[in-house]
């Protein structure tokens, strides 16, 4: 592993600060989620992104407000970085109707039409064809939106991945396939599931440009994503980006995490994405410890406010159970 502190930040300080701020926001938000899960305020599946923040933050900061995002069940970071209000996300996890999906989806299904976040999809690989379709719609309508779809390396073994890659490359669709390779799909390490563990080699077989980025370095993830987006927006077809990263926490709150070596986890923790950037900024004089603490305090304040918003939220009336099943009259009208 190279020493990231030696690498120059290489982007203007305000931009780097914005990246840092979003990573800290996500970290503080999710740490609180874990606490709230312990208090049973949040139930169901909860998949934390802690350790992987540089991927969503770098990638989303390389996209424009009109672009489309399709994410997985591990998408709190994507929603926060995209600008979905923390309160609406937290309320969703509480199951309150002020949540960004009215409490219908929970942690795994964050939706936000305003920022073009097309879900939180909890079918592994399920978001990929959807993203291809969004891109097809864009191409057919002559627009310039790019669709970014996020998925784990586990999804690469799914048929949906291969069918989607083929369709997107065949029709030169404006999609960025963002593979968040954290090396484990639940308890299954990549060597135990992939005949070819070089995911870029696999993707390249679809006649698609591929990029690999250090997913622990937000400057690198943003740079790779900028490259990918520029190529895709120019009409040259889809790009596959592999972000190599690591989740510090268990797969979900139900996971006893028995399949990884603790030393491996500790090794990756030395490369933490937040300190990776903050240390480099400090070394270059664009960040002081006080400024860093202020960012942290601000993030904690935002999370406090989000929790208060969620706590004050209301339950959707049970009579609304079938609302929004259909658009016309909301419910099945022949009943």
């Amino acid at each position: 592993m190279s020493d990231p502190e030696r690498k120059p930040v290489g982007i203007p300080a305000p931009e780097a600060l914005a990246l840092l701020r979003d990573m800290v926001r996500i970290r503080r938000f999710e740490e609180r989620c874990a606490d709230l899960y312990g208090q049973q305020k949040i139930r169901g599946f909860l998949h934390l992104y802690i350790g992987e923040e540089a991927v969503a933050v770098g990638a989303l900061h390389a996209l424009g407000p009109g672009d489309n995002i399709v994410a997985t069940y591990r998408e709190h970071g994507h929603a926060l970085a995209r600008g979905v209000p923390a309160g609406a996300i937290m309320a969703e996890m509480y199951g309150k109707q002020e949540g960004c999906s009215r409490g219908r989806g929970g942690s795994m299904h964050l939706f936000d039409a305003k920022t073009r976040l097309f879900g939180g999809n909890a079918i592994v690989g399920g978001g990929l064809p959807l993203a291809v379709g969004l891109a097809l719609a864009e191409q057919m309508q002559g627009g310039s939106r790019v669709t970014a779809v996020f998925f784990g390396e586990g999804a690469v073994a799914e048929g949906a991945f291969h069918e989607s890659m083929n369709l997107a490359a065949l029709w030169k669709l404006p999609v960025v396939f963002c593979c968040e390779n954290n090396f484990y799909a639940m308890g299954t390490a990549i060597e135990r599931s992939e005949s070819q563990t070089d995911l870029c080699a696999k993707a390249a077989s679809y006649n698609m440009k591929t990029l690999r980025a250090d997913g622990m370095d937000v400057i690198a993830t943003q740079a790779a994503m900028r490259d990918a987006v520029a190529q895709v927006r120019s009409g040259a077809g889809p790009v596959f980006v592999e972000f190599q990263t690591y989740r510090y926490r268990a797969h979900s709150m139900f996971d006893p995490d028995l399949y990884r070596d603790k030393a491996e986890v500790e090794r990756w923790k030395t490369r933490g994405p937040i300190h990776n950037l903050s240390n480099r900024m400090k070394a270059e004089g664009s960040l002081t410890e006080e400024a860093f603490l202020a960012i942290d305090a601000e993030a904690i304040k935002e999370v406090d406010a989000a929790v208060a918003f969620a706590e004050a939220g209301t339950w959707e009336p049970v009579e609304h159970l079938a609302h929004d099943l259909y658009t016309v009259n909301g419910v099945e009208t022949a009943r």
């Binding site: 489309n68 959807l130 057919m140 989607s164």
Partner: peptide
């Protein structure tokens, strides 16, 4: 799976 999902995405896309 791929093209039906693609149609669904295209429908979402307008």
């Amino acid at each position: 799976l791929g093209f039906v999902g693609t149609a669904i995405g295209a429908a979402l896309g307008g």
